[in-house]
Design a protein around this nucleic acid. Sequence first.
DNA 1: ATTTACTCTATCAACTAGATAGGTTAAATA
DNA 2: TATTTAACCTATCTAGTTGATAGAGTAAAT
Lengths: 159, 159
Amino acid sequence: MLSKKAKYAIKALLALAEHDRDEPFRIADLAREENIPAKFLELILLGLRNHGILQSRKGKGGGYLLARDPADIYLGQIVRMFDGPLAPVPCASQTAYVRCTDCKNEAVCGVHLAMKEVRDATAKILDGTSLASLHRQVELATIHTSAAAAFGPQVPIKD
Amino acid sequence: MLSKKAKYAIKALLALAEHDRDEPFRIADLAREENIPAKFLELILLGLRNHGILQSRKGKGGGYLLARDPADIYLGQIVRMFDGPLAPVPCASQTAYVRCTDCKNEAVCGVHLAMKEVRDATAKILDGTSLASLHRQVELATIHTSAAAAFGPQVPIKD
DNA sequence: ATTTACTCTATCAACTAGATAGGTTAAATA
DNA sequence: TATTTAACCTATCTAGTTGATAGAGTAAAT
């Protein structure tokens, strides 16, 4: 399960990526816009800042900005930061490998084999998706959705 | 994260799949062989039985058996049974969809889009891997491992 | 000096995971 | 029939985590 922290982080970062690159975004505004408890979001953004993903400005006119280009911020990094390794089991993790104490021989462990596949597939997606590319996907989906809306639910008009 | 329950379940089921199909396997033996706390395994096997994945026999000569062909038992079912839906977020689940209350339009939500990809990739793997196929993978890995062992670590012999 | 808005630490209730304890029931066998 | 064996079932516990809130501190702008 993705934690709320990671989920909110992605939503907030995506909003920042869509927003004017050098205009600070206030916590309160971000919270309202994305339906996130403000105090909770505060913690999350602070974490992102301390990991060098966000920049901040204090005082009037302050707020948060992306510290890097949206094309260089990957979901994999965000998820790992809040939820730890992507692998379902520590012995299948590439970034935070830990041996199973109960396992005689990992090379021939069924759980290991299957979960390594899952971790590789997940990593391929999340380490391959940047805020920029996700933003493009959202735009694409928006066009499709609004096109569908324009041609409307096909209900005959009664006059 | 895969829970210990799901992990132990897979290990136990795989051991049963490798074992004589109509010879009951006792909890205690299974626990010893797979390094699983016996009382905890008891609970897990009971759950599997109540879901129709295992059969049991009481009393002397009793124990657990697979209720179906190993080729018809998929990891997806096991994992869902103990850990719930495969999707990282409920709105991306196919088998247990729940709408996000905080999300205006799911069709254009970045989190939804990315997590649906992850859930689909995960489901493809876990719903495509049966105990039988996993067993084959383990055998294959065993051959590779023992071959590597046979040709040994390539350390020159000093005489 | 005051306002604004981020910074930081502490705290909390609710929940869950992993595990253990201990009695109950049913099947086999002596 | 009594005994042994081994699954069945319910209760309980502790430790840790998650999602969230409170409130005082600090830096920048006006």
